[in-house]
Design a protein around this nucleic acid. Structure first.
Lengths: 239, 239
DNA sequence: CGAATTCTTGAAGGTAATCAAATGAAGTGG
DNA sequence: CCACTTCATTTGATTACCTTCAAGAATTCG
């Protein structure tokens, strides 16, 4: 169990202290951090776990199970992101969270956060902002569901690039911590469709795929694709 | 412009005062209500409008435009529901809201609500709850996107029935304020697919369709359909 | 190095979309 | 009240996109 140990490193030494809400919590109950191996769960749906978790290192996916028992990925998280943001207003987790690679996460007690809000209006608005961002992120996922496979892949790559750019990596080299299958379970596409479209975008010269690293050679064209102008080349690739 | 008039009826007389957050706002700036005709907008995407709107009467849809300019319906609202709940944490509306039938809505200034939170922790948690519910509603919409047309229709009817049941109407008579087209733009299905599936569910004896009123004859079977057990009858209906 | 997983590629099939048109309902104005 | 227009709904035929099935290549990992 990841969170059984003693409280780990102080917030002052944390690489993400600048964007972590835990720094506002110099309370009696210290935050706890944990290392996770690839494939380990941070929490599971139904856990009566009044916590949110800041990702300090690594990569995490959150997912739910669709009606037919299929894994449906809701978000990919990077350092600085919060797992369990949807737990505000609830007593148990509604999603599962699993480490995509060896990771570190820091656990923040929900009620501490909520209580701190009354004393700290800044924290309050930060939480509101985070939840509000989640609403809009989900809304844009709904938008994505109505795009073609090609559009989804293009948009996914651009989003990944943008996210990584925000973390200092500025070149158009996108590193994917997740498998093609994960991408499919996120975009609602079969693995084969993901693979085929990546291959296609490469043959069009828009991207260069090397394992889990993808170089965006022509972001301009990718954006056009994402906006609906289908790539002309040859017959529709379909799946 | 719906909100130009004088402040209308006091909260004490409002049919939804019990569930309206506006009752906690006995402030200097009075809430304003407005009547809307079918087809009129309450607000549009981009409106720099720091308000939320309680639906008092009628029915409302909120929608965004997908990348190809298609209307994509995000929610159907009934009396007691809040339009613009996603505006918390933002300064402008991200969705459009239109009256599906002649309606009344009451406008609540956002900053009043937020300010009131510091004095009124109960209000704070009500807002958190409302936003949190929206997160989960969007999450379940994502789930819906991975179901078959048949499942979506069945689930939609059951949800409508449940919502109306919450308002006192207990019989399995579902009144639809929206057109088939709206249902399609909500469920991400072509109008024809909606129509065909309604016809099919009727021919199976699960429902009885009469214009915009649908009687649920066999909720049990509908729930099975919604959970993925396809209706056996004949060839797959498809679209 | 061998087992397991992941990725890629091909072929066939299915679900829902699109195209097309007829029917039905609702609202308008004479 | 009825012709007329308009909009909503239904039904049929065809098409397209993606999935599924199948199998082989590449990578990872023990």
């Amino acid at each position: 169990m990841p969170f059984d140990g003693t409280p780990t490193s102080r917030c002052e030494q944390c690489p993400i202290s600048a964007c972590c809400m835990g720094t506002e919590l110099n309370s009696s109950a210290p935050n706890r951090c944990a290392r996770l191996l690839r494939g380990e769960h941070i929490f599971r749906s139904g856990d009566r776990a009044p916590y949110v978790y800041m990702v300090r290192k690594g990569a995490v996916k959150t997912y739910i199970l669709s009606t037919d028992g299929e894994e449906q990925i809701i978000s990919f998280l990077s350092p600085g992101d919060i797992a369990g943001i949807d737990t505000f207003g609830h007593t148990s987790q509604t999603r599962n969270a699993m480490a995509l690679e060896d990771s570190e996460v820091c656990r923040l007690p929900l009620d501490n956060l909520v209580n701190a809000c009354t004393r700290n209006p800044g924290l309050h608005s930060r939480i509101m902002d985070a939840v509000s961002r989640e609403v809009h992120r989900l809304q844009s996922m709904l938008k994505m569901e109505r795009m073609t496979a090609e559009q989804r892949i293009a948009m996914f790559l651009l989003n990944q690039a943008r996210r990584q750019a925000g973390q200092g990596h500025d070149l158009p080299l996108v590193h994917l911590a997740m498998t093609r299958g994960d991408i499919g379970r996120f975009l609602d596409l079969a693995v084969e469709t993901v693979s085929r479209n990546l291959t296609r975008l490469q043959s069009l010269g828009y991207i260069l795929v090397d394992r889990n690293t993808i170089e965006l050679l022509d972001s301009e064209r990718l954006q056009q694709l994402a906006r609906g102008r289908p790539a002309a080349g040859g017959a529709a690739v379909a799946a």
